[in-house]
Amino acid sequence: MDVTFRIRRLNPEIPGKDKPYWQEFKLSDVEPTDRVLEMLHRIKWEQDGTLAFRRSCAHGVCGSDAMRINGVNRLACKVLVKDLGTKIQVEPILGLPVLKDLIVDMEPFFAHYRQVMPFFVNDTPLPEDGRERLQSPQDRELFDDTTKCILCACCTTACPSFWANGSYVGPAAIVQAHRFIFDSRDQAAADRLDILAEPDGVWRCRTIFNCTPACPREIEITKAIGEVKLAIMRGSPEGIIQVQEIKHEA
């Protein structure tokens, strides 16, 4: 089938193209199961090599190719032509400065990530037997969902609060903080809760719910943010998440 791509472009080095503009490309022999990323590659390799976008793994795990596709944030490698129709509009994710075509400056995003102490902290002595710290399967389950995050920025750049206010840490950073706050082995939950209690922390979340459907990993993001808010309110992550019984492999 034939598909028309309408792509939001910008080239900072070419006068006249250094402001965002739309460009159309026509592709024929498109299979319904082709991914948008493949189509972007075809445009780049067959029609216009100047088209710039990030990509790597091409199957929804590395998080390079977050874009706004037909109005919503997706990974270009995880959305098929058949789910979009024959007119496909692609533009950069919003809220981060556009550097060239579909490439945005990810530095502010990673700066927010680094802000929430996104690393494991436990300064107690290691187990004497030289083995792993123990953790029950139930405790492990509490933060399972938020370990899936690939930092693609689909959620953060789908958030109207973030569009309005780039100093808001954003859903992705809160998801990353959640992964540690609710890890029974970690000891810095109180510090992270303090950081997120700042005016630009969790409180800028207005429960708009744009982040949750934008997540290519299907993380329950707004729920995670809610749990962090409650943890701040109660001063502790204890008892906020209830897990169902864990089944064991035989």
Partner: peptide, 18 residues
């Protein structure tokens, strides 16, 4: 920006509730 992009972003019902 927020107004125009909220209109352009095809967010779900939650966005319109907000």
């Amino acid at each position: 920006l927020t107004i125009t992009e909220t209109l352009r972003y095809r967010g779900a019902l939650g966005q319109w509730s907000w």
